[in-house]
Design a protein around this nucleic acid. Structure first.
Lengths: 159, 159
DNA sequence: AGCGATTATATCGCACAAGATATAATCGCT
DNA sequence: AGCGATTATATCTTGTGCGATATAATCGCT
């Protein structure tokens, strides 16, 4: 029963914007970051800087490589970002005495203090966003799984 | 029955990286774009340029504003990007004779021809990615809904 | 017709991203 | 011990993103 001949599953159709998986990911990531921005700029932070701080609030000090593995960023992005955080007095950068290649990043007192100031951000974001919490949890679970898959894919393609 | 006192639902806990919704979105978007890159660079395209072309392949010509509404980008990002596409001979930029404020973007012959060359990209990406198609569909549906929500949120906060 | 408000695009400045390459320190093997 | 390979960061370049502002064209209202 060839009833669908009028609109064949043309390969070209797959190129429509609303067929893409990557586009809503790309767009949603940017739009969500825009909502973070007004909350973060109170403390002079950008979103990537906030991510780095979250990593350091969990464990300090960290090497640049450790931060990079967690945030999925390389030194070409991290080095300038960390220098800016150092300028702002949020972190310190020190060469590891055991291995002089390594730069250890540690929170300053100010950096540590920012944690309690930022503590309200997740709740505040949830409130501002007003997205159904059940759906948000489902989305997060799928995204986490997808990210695990992408991480594995990325490490495959280093060799 | 206060049994959970040992690990109270501390606000600080919400600041852990694996509690964030935005981070997997941000990271997955970047990792996925990295997988697109080798496919796109054959045609000298970046991922945002590819998005703009997808929009134009669906409808040409388009005004800069129309493209911006679809791609969720403003002229500060689009103008330079479109100038680069123009340099590469993929599009043309012409002032609208009816309304001199508007710049109309149209595909060139080369730009049109790129569509058939890029037709294999969605399928090729799916193959390279190797992510469970059912989960990909579920993820896309949730992401689309989330993006609709974010769009509505964004337009609310213009006033 | 005239003029303030709106709209479309452009420009500027700063901060990511990420590929390519450089540099210095450490490791591993003989 | 010595030296080529690996590792950790840094640097350079190009291309976004985006807030803020500029500029020119059009609209709306009297």
């Amino acid at each position: 029963m060839k009833v669908a001949l009028a609109t064949p599953p043309d390969t070209a159709t797959l190129l429509d914007l609303d067929k893409q998986l990557c586009f809503p990911l790309y767009a949603a990531s940017r739009l969500l970051t825009r909502i973070y921005q007004p909350l973060l700029e109170r403390y002079g932070l950008t979103y990537p800087q906030y991510i780095v701080l979250i990593i350091l609030w969990e464990k300090t000090p960290c090497s640049v490589t450790e931060i990079g593995e967690r945030a999925l960023l390389n030194s070409n992005t991290l080095t300038p970002l960390l220098k800016r955080l150092e300028q702002q007095g949020v972190i310190t950068r020190t060469r590891d005495s055991g291995d002089e290649r390594v730069v250890m990043i540690a929170l300053t007192e100010h950096g540590r203090a920012l944690k309690s100031k930022c503590a309200c951000i997740p709740t505040e974001m949830q409130k501002r966003l007003g997205f159904d919490p059940d759906k948000a949890i489902a989305l997060k679970q799928l995204l986490d799984e997808f990210l695990r898959h992408l991480r594995a894919h990325a490490s495959d393609h280093l060799a």
